[in-house]
Structures are given as C-alpha cells and as structure tokens.
C-alpha cells in the first residue's frame, strides 16, 4: 500500500473549488513533487493530506488512514514543513528541537538534527535572528524530529540561498534512501527536476501532467550529457551554434534537437579533446513542458502574494 494516496480529490476553500479532481500516489523511498503556478492547488492538496482541510469529495489516505482520524497516531508518523512560519521566534534551533522532541515517543537526537541541516554554528541563536534560509532549514529539522515515515514539505527551498539548498537537497536524498516517502511542492522547475522521482503538474486545481521527470521530458528539445567538470562552454556552444550550459559540475545541456548527426558530432567533439563521456540523454527542458501546459490554461498564473516575514513583538 502506498504511503500517500490521493483519489479524485476535490477541496473547496472559502466557497471556491481550489482542488478539482486530483489523483496520485507516492511510494516509500520516493520523492513526489507537486509543481505548478501559484493558485494551482498545491498547498491545498498538501494541507488536506496533512489533515488541516476536509475533502469536499474524493479521498486522501496517508499510511492507509484518513489523516483526520486517529490524529495522535498519525502525527507521530508524519513530518510537516508549512509554507511559512511554524517556529517560535524566540527559540534557538536546539531549544525548539528539544521541545519538539518531547512530543514524540521515539525522537531523533536534537543536536544531531541541528548538524544534519547545517545549523550547528547557530544552534543557540534565536530563530528571529536567523536568515530566512536558516529558518527553513530549522523548519525541516523540526519536521524530522519524530522520525517520520511520510514527510510533507511545502516549498522547502523557497527563499533559501544556494548553500542552504544544497543542505536541504542532501537531507532529502538521505531520507529517500532511508525509505521515507516525501511529498514536496515547488513552483521552481529546476528544483522539482533535481529533487523528484515523480512529478505531478497542477494547474487550476487539476493534474495537467504527471510522471517520472524522464518520461515528461521524453519529447526532447535538448541534449544532456555528463563528462568531466569545467568544459569550455563557449567553444562547445560555438561549435554547435547554440547555447551550452553546465547545470551542475560535470552535467551539461546543449540546446539542440538530439538527432543522430548532432549526437555524433558531440561525441566526436568530446573524443577529439579526450574527454570521456559518462552519460548522454535526449531531454526536453521541464520548463518547456510547463509552458506548454500553461499555454492551454485558461487561468493565467496569479502573481506571487507578498510573503509576510514572522512578526516581532
């Protein structure tokens, strides 16, 4: 049985249907990303799974149960990062995690968690004095205190600096390998592509597309390959008369249709420079999928609502 199962979910908020017939499942050890513009229904779907909202119709099952029932047992088995807030501003990371640890029957070690999310240097600093990115990492650590089997992360990397993102990605990877089922939301395509095993693209409360990133990206507009880091991107781009990018060290994207001649030319270019080719795939950029999806969309994406910083007293 899947740890997360959503079936024909319809959720109404303030009289308006926000989620309109969404279905998907997620397995243990899998990262599922809900992707979509603001107002697509991502947070509403997650908050229904977390037990905050009632489905109007359809069903949500977390670990085989209705998340609103047997709340105490359910809450010991799930971890939650809200879209914003959720921290006592006057508490330091260590203090907050020790408090949260007292709620759970078998908590993780707070000091270890602080180290895991890379906050050891600021373990004793009140949350209100931490950067936005540090606060998101603290929120992630708080979600892990109960050693959850299912983790819900609503925009875990929004507003987080690159260093913080690396730390969060490393934690997510580690949890995935430990068999945790992770549902995250994001409106950032690259983040979703990097983190997720399974993507569900929402638009206007419905599933626009779903599948493994590789499947969604099968209709290729781009060549992806892995080789030694630090290739001369200018020379490579010039050779093919297009843009070449290094997505992360040693992973490249070349904006050309992956026809046979181009692939042959690429391997030849690498061979001439004695560069070993580790991996080669034809890929469409996720952004293209996303934009195609939105083009059919009668509802234009709404502008981002202003984020409110935690207020001080």
């Amino acid at each position: 049985m899947e740890p997360i199962a959503v079936q024909d979910l319809v959720v109404r908020r303030s009289g308006r249907v926000v989620v309109d017939g969404v279905s998907f499942t997620a397995e243990a050890g899998e990262v599922l990303a809900l992707l979509g513009p603001n107002g697509a229904g991502k947070t509403t779907t997650v908050e229904t799974l977390e037990g905050y909202l009632h489905p109007e119709s359809g069903s949500v099952r977390v670990l085989g149960c209705d998340p609103r029932e047997r709340r105490e047992e359910m809450t010991t088995r799930i971890g939650v990062v809200l879209q914003e807030g959720g921290l006592y501003p006057q508490m330091s990371p260590l203090r907050l995690l020790r408090l949260f640890a007292s709620y759970y029957p078998d908590p993780a070690d707070p000091a270890e968690l602080v180290g895991l999310v890379g906050l050891s240097d600021v373990a004793g600093v009140a949350a209100k004095r931490l950067s936005g990115g540090q606060r998101r990492r603290l929120a992630l650590a708080a979600a892990l205190v109960g050693q959850p089997e299912v983790l819900f992360l609503d925009e875990p990397t929004a507003g987080v600096d690159p260093e913080g993102r690396l730390a969060i990605r490393a934690v997510i990877d580690r949890l995935r390998h430990e068999g945790v089922c992770i549902l995250l939301t994001t409106h950032e395509l690259e983040e979703a592509e990097r983190l997720a095993d399974h993507l569900v693209l929402l638009r206007a409360g419905r599933v626009g597309a779903a599948g493994r990133p590789a499947d969604l990206l099968a209709d290729a507009q781009e060549i992806r390959f892995s080789a030694t880091p630090g290739l001369d991107l200018v020379a490579l781009g010039a050779h093919f008369g297009t843009e070449a990018r290094e997505l992360r060290p040693g992973e490249y994207a070349l904006a050309r249709r992956p026809d046979g001649a181009t692939l042959a030319a690429l391997t030849a270019w690498l061979a001439a420079r004695h560069i070993p080719l580790a991996e080669l795939r034809a890929a469409k950029r996720l952004e293209d999928v996303f934009l195609e999806l939105l083009e059919d969309d009668p509802v234009a994406p709404r502008p981002e609502p202003p984020r409110r910083a935690p207020r001080r007293r």
Binding site: F100, P105, G146
Partner: peptide, 22 residues
C-alpha cells in the same frame, strides 16, 4: 492573549497541530 495571538499568526499553533502534542 498576546502570546497566543502571535503564536497563531506565526503559524506555530498550526504547526503544533501536526505534532502529537494534542
């Protein structure tokens, strides 16, 4: 009132709702 009001606006109360602290 003031402490609880701010905990609510910081989403702390909401967050606690997803922990086993009833």
């Amino acid at each position: 009132a003031v402490a609880t009001g701010f905990e609510r606006s910081w989403r702390v109360l909401k967050r606690l709702g997803a922990t086993p602290l009833s």
